[in-house]
Computed example of a mutant assay.
Amino acid sequence: MTETKSLFKVAGIFGAAALTLSLASCSGGQSVADACNIANSTVNEATGDLQSVLSDATSGEGDLSAAFDPITEALEDAQSEVTNEEVSTALASFTDELSAMSGTLEGYEIPDASSIDPADPEAMDKLDQMQAEAEEMTTKLQEQSTSLTEAGQNLQDICTAG
């Protein structure tokens, strides 16, 4: 149960970081404004079904790291269209942080603790191990989400100033 709550927390943090990008109000030519517009519209399109993918993954029906794939791909596509150096650098930083978070989650499966017998010492050791792994994962993801949020804020600041 703790693992699921932690993953929902991470998903919420990720959603907030994605929202940071979507709040960047930019438009215009291939200036900072145009580059921000490309990044913003690309991310908005890619995050359309994020909630459903995250829901599937946290219920054991999918790979949580796969939820990041469409967004990472969209950001990489946006990078190929952005020629403004300042925005391109900030966008690359955001993309790198998101990729790192995805890499951390790659192959991670939410453990099924429903079959663990609390009277069985071996089973309880396994549960303790699962909890320790989940705590380690949560700590790492919280650090990465902080970096992701900072990269998103930097991009937003550039877009707002542009």
Rank of each mutant, 00 (worst) to 15 (best):
K5E: 14
S6C: 11
S6R: 12
S6M: 12
L7Y: 00
K9T: 15
K9A: 14
A11N: 08
G12L: 09
G12C: 13
G12Q: 13
G12M: 11
G12D: 09
I13P: 03
A16G: 15
A17N: 13
A18W: 07
L19R: 13
S22Y: 02
S22A: 10
L23A: 02
A24S: 11
A24L: 13
A24H: 01
C26G: 08
C26S: 12
G28I: 06
G29S: 12
G29M: 05
Q30W: 08
V32I: 08
V32L: 05
A33G: 15
A33Y: 06
A33N: 11
D34S: 14
A35D: 08
C36H: 03
A39N: 01
S41Y: 11
T42R: 15
T42C: 11
T42A: 15
N44L: 14
E45K: 15
A46C: 02
A46V: 02
T47C: 06
T47I: 15
G48T: 15
G48C: 07
G48R: 13
D49I: 15
D49P: 12
Q51N: 14
S52Q: 14
V53S: 15
V53H: 14
L54P: 01
S55G: 00
D56Y: 05
D56N: 11
A57K: 03
S59L: 13
S59G: 11
G60D: 00
G60I: 09
E61T: 11
E61C: 05
G62E: 04
G62H: 02
G62V: 09
D63H: 03
L64Y: 10
L64K: 00
S65N: 02
A66K: 05
A66Y: 00
A67C: 08
A67V: 00
F68D: 10
D69R: 07
P70I: 03
I71K: 01
I71Q: 01
T72N: 08
T72L: 09
T72Q: 04
E73R: 10
E73T: 15
E73F: 02
L75Q: 07
D77N: 14
D77H: 08
S80K: 15
S80N: 14
S80F: 00
E81A: 11
V82D: 07
N84D: 14
N84Q: 08
E86M: 06
V87C: 04
V87Q: 05
V87N: 03
S88F: 01
T89Y: 03
T89S: 12
A90F: 04
A90G: 04
A90D: 10
L91D: 03
A92Y: 03
A92Q: 10
S93Y: 07
S93Q: 13
F94G: 05
T95M: 03
T95F: 02
L98T: 11
S99D: 12
S99A: 14
S99Q: 08
A100L: 12
M101S: 15
M101R: 10
T104S: 10
T104R: 07
L105Q: 08
L105A: 03
Y108A: 05
Y108W: 08
E109T: 12
I110L: 13
P111D: 00
D112M: 07
D112L: 05
A113F: 02
A113Y: 01
A113G: 09
S114K: 00
I116Q: 06
D117R: 05
D117T: 04
D117S: 06
A119V: 09
A119Q: 09
D120S: 10
D120E: 05
D120V: 02
D120I: 00
D120C: 08
P121I: 02
